[in-house]
């Protein structure tokens, strides 16, 4: 079985600054991968690279032939001058039947929202509608960029349980970015730590037991550090590229106190 998406040494820039400096990663059908990393580490750029909104400037990006992507953006600012019912939104860009729309809404946990205006939805409802729209393309790969922004903790926990459930029902791969590592972890098969390139990746349990994971709240940099330290401390089953060129923030903190207990 071929990978859904495969990146080799992928490079990309944002406003003249090279944000991704050589990313290697693969995404397989049916797996949930979460990307974590400090602010400005290129998480969103990586997502946008995969959907084709950012040009590849080096390396390679291979998508499975005919790959259908369902994309749930970080935020969707709908201009107040644009009247848009949920039902109409679900028919973009391809028109879908009422039955299909209702089914997608049900899947995403937004049953009965059809006639509401997008502008009137609560944060949680809005995310569910975005998700429903992504599901309508019957995606091979579901991409969620900070999909739980604006949800409270129980809300985002429910949202991620829903994603996990959808993966089982649809068999699609899921790639998501989140700051909320503590909520995401239960649902992820693999966590990737990104900082211009993939510094670490591994099963989330190792991250889950890290005492520092709470530091993720409020500051992305702290969070990624916590993850990084942790994986250095407990090197079981986690692939970290120690010999990689660590010319970034992680390295500066590499020798700090966190290793004393190792």
């Amino acid at each position: 079985m071929t990978s859904l998406v495969e990146l080799r040494g992928a490079r990309a820039s944002l406003g003249g600054r090279e944000v991704l400096t050589g990313v290697d990663m693969t995404l397989e059908r049916g797996e949930i991968v979460t990307i974590v990393g400090p602010n400005g580490s290129g998480k969103s750029t990586l997502m946008r690279l995969i959907i084709g909104a950012v040009p590849l400037q080096g390396g390679s990006l291979t998508r499975a032939p005919g790959l259908r992507i369902g994309y749930v953006p970080q935020k969707l600012q709908i201009d107040p001058t644009l009247p848009l019912s949920v039902r109409r939104f679900l028919s973009l860009p391809a028109r879908v039947s009422d039955a299909a729309a209702a089914e997608a809404l049900e899947h995403a946990g937004g049953t009965g929202l059809e006639q509401r205006q997008m502008a009137d939805l609560s944060g949680g409802q809005f995310q569910r509608v975005l998700l429903a729209r992504a599901l309508l393309t019957r995606p091979d790969l579901l991409i969620l960029d900070e999909a739980t922004q604006g949800l409270d903790q129980p809300g985002s926990a429910r949202f991620y349980r829903l994603i996990e459930q959808l993966r089982q029902e649809l068999g699609c791969g899921v790639l998501m970015v989140s700051h909320e590592l503590h909520v995401v972890m239960a649902a992820s098969d693999r966590v990737l730590c990104l900082n211009g390139h993939v510094c670490c990746e591994g099963a989330p349990e190792h991250v889950a037991s890290a005492p520092e994971y709470r530091a993720l709240f409020g500051s992305g940099t702290q969070g990624a550090l916590a993850l990084y330290r942790h994986q250095h401390d407990h090197d079981h089953g986690v692939a970290c590229d120690h010999d990689h060129d660590h010319g970034h923030a992680h390295h500066d903190h590499h020798d700090h106190g966190s290793h004393s207990d190792a």
């Binding site: 959907i51 909104a53 953006p73 709908i78 644009l82 939104f89 973009l92």
Partner: peptide
């Protein structure tokens, strides 16, 4: 609505 949504 969103250039990124269109791209995807």
């Amino acid at each position: 609505l969103s250039p990124d949504l269109a791209r995807a």
